[in-house]
Design a protein around this nucleic acid. Structure first.
Lengths: 297, 297
DNA sequence: GTCTTTGATACCTATTGGGTATTGCCTGGC
DNA sequence: GCCAGGCAATACCCAATAGGTATCAAAGAC
């Protein structure tokens, strides 16, 4: 049995007449007669009752017809879905995310992606950087969002956004009176570092910057996540350096001031397997790239 | 897209290697390569990633594979079901029945039919003779059980069973002392006739027989159905002539005696459209014929 | 009766699916 | 670094078969 048989059968069933049915499928009448007979022989079932003025479906024919429409519809749908999948418009995308990235960038990116590719199921997985790398290698993730990505592992990395570093300060702290904060102003200030893991972290980066300036910061606390660190700032525990996106976290008595210096930025990047040719990944990267160039200006 | 493509695709997806897949579908490797490429071009989607040591499904390929197995399974099943339908082993049978026929014959027949053709849905419809004829003509019934079928309408009629006529008598009636009852013994007896409709009925037949014997029976009551008539016999209202199958109705004080005479029989027949070539009808008629020859002896 | 319409048959043609031979590429072994 | 083995792709041929044309036979319509 071939699809040709099903198409011819449907045409004949609907037209009830070999001549018209043949015209409809763009062949002449004798080949249609032959193909139908072939189908009937293969099925071992008479599908049409030949009457004097055309043909009528037998009972077996009626049953076959019901199934045939299903098969043809399924085949049609399969073609369309496969085409969509190949264009990266249908399927599933597993995205690795982490604490502070969720605050602002990820929602905007994912929203835009879902708007453009509504048939792609997006699954978000909150994981640390090493967990993401592992998951990417094992294929459990398609793309992961990371900061301070080590060059080493065989991963392609693409910058999503360059963010200024901001200093979160309690408004009672005298530093809050300045519009920008220089690193040197950290001398003597109680500093909250985050995240405490995984290393190397933004905290490590800040300490290294201070060292380059010729002093060692007074670290009073290391915390797991950005929300906790800002909460500590809010209660007057100390100051804290955070990526700009964290400023969307508004807590009482907390003000944000840019860290002075043009190179005081941190990159948010997305990582993926360089051998992954998945069209969904390509679709996603396209959205990322547009997002980046829109936010560069 | 043709089934060929699906079969080849499945083989390749499972073998992961053109050479082995080609062997599996009994063609050589180059045509398989061509057919797969053809399928990919038609779908506008790369289905396999060609690697150094074989092929692997792409994402679109995985999706296509899942759908392909459904299509192939559906096609296979369709073939089998159609074959069954053509052999009269699958489908639906609408049977017209009526009062007294239900008592004994129909259950036995239907049970046997369902044992032999378990995939045929049997629907029973209780209707009068004219209703059955109407329904048969309109195709709402495939076969109908009737008694005293008029020859006229364009229906094929097949005898199912020839039953003796029995006289139902209250045991207090002196007639109950005889082993057989002659028609002549009806003289002066209160007679219950059934059914009152549709005409011609068994009741009419009895009256005609009496007239042929030279007397007019004393009809005390006409009733709709056999159960009522036997109930009246039970309460001493009179005697009643019924088909033998009605003797399975055991009511208090009712005894059954054969009506004397070798020609005192009534036929149960089944009627169907003579132009109906439905294989299910043929299957059913076969069961009917076997039933008849089993009960003739 | 004739004419029209139906599906079936006979026979030819053209498409195309499948076969063989071969190439080109990658990989693993030495 | 080179060679052998296994892989898919290519080139080309042949044969199976789907489709075309001409025609027939049967069954209404008139």
């Amino acid at each position: 049995m071939e699809f040709r048989h099903l198409r011819y059968f449907m045409a004949l069933a609907e037209e009830g007449n070999f001549g018209r049915a043949a015209k409809r499928v763009h062949i002449s009448q004798p080949p249609l007669t032959r193909q139908i007979r072939q189908l009937e022989e293969e099925l071992g079932a008479r599908l049409f009752e030949r009457t004097s003025k055309g043909v009528e479906l037998t009972e077996a024919g009626h049953l076959f017809r019901e199934e045939a429409v299903k098969i043809l519809a399924l085949a049609q749908l399969t073609g369309e879905k496969t085409r969509m999948a190949a264009r990266g418009e249908l399927g599933r995308l597993d995205v690795g995310i982490f604490g502070s990235s969720v605050l602002d960038v990820i929602p905007r990116l994912i929203l835009e992606f879902r708007r453009r590719y509504p048939a792609v199921e997006v699954h978000l997985h909150n994981m640390t950087r090493p967990e993401q790398i592992q998951a990417l290698q094992e294929g459990r993730l398609t793309v992961g969002f990371v900061r301070l990505f080590p060059d080493a592992p065989a991963m392609a990395v693409e910058t999503v956004l360059k963010e200024r570093l901001m200093v979160a300060i309690n408004r009672d702290n005298e530093l809050s009176r300045h519009r920008e904060i220089a690193l040197r102003a950290f001398v003597g200030q109680p500093l909250i570092l985050f995240p405490s893991s995984p290393r190397p972290s933004l905290g490590d980066h800040i300490v290294a910057l201070c060292n380059r300036e010729g002093f060692t910061p007074r670290v009073v606390q290391e915390v797991e996540d950005v929300v906790t660190s800002i909460a500590l700032v809010s209660s007057g525990f100390g100051i804290c350096v955070v990526p700009e996106c964290a400023t969307s976290l508004r807590l009482p008595r907390v003000v944000y001031r840019p860290l002075k210096g043009t190179d005081q930025i941190i990159e948010l990047a997305c990582a993926y397997r360089p051998d992954d040719r998945s069209p969904i990944l390509q679709s996603f990267l396209e959205v990322v790239r547009q997002f980046r160039s829109a936010n560069e200006a």
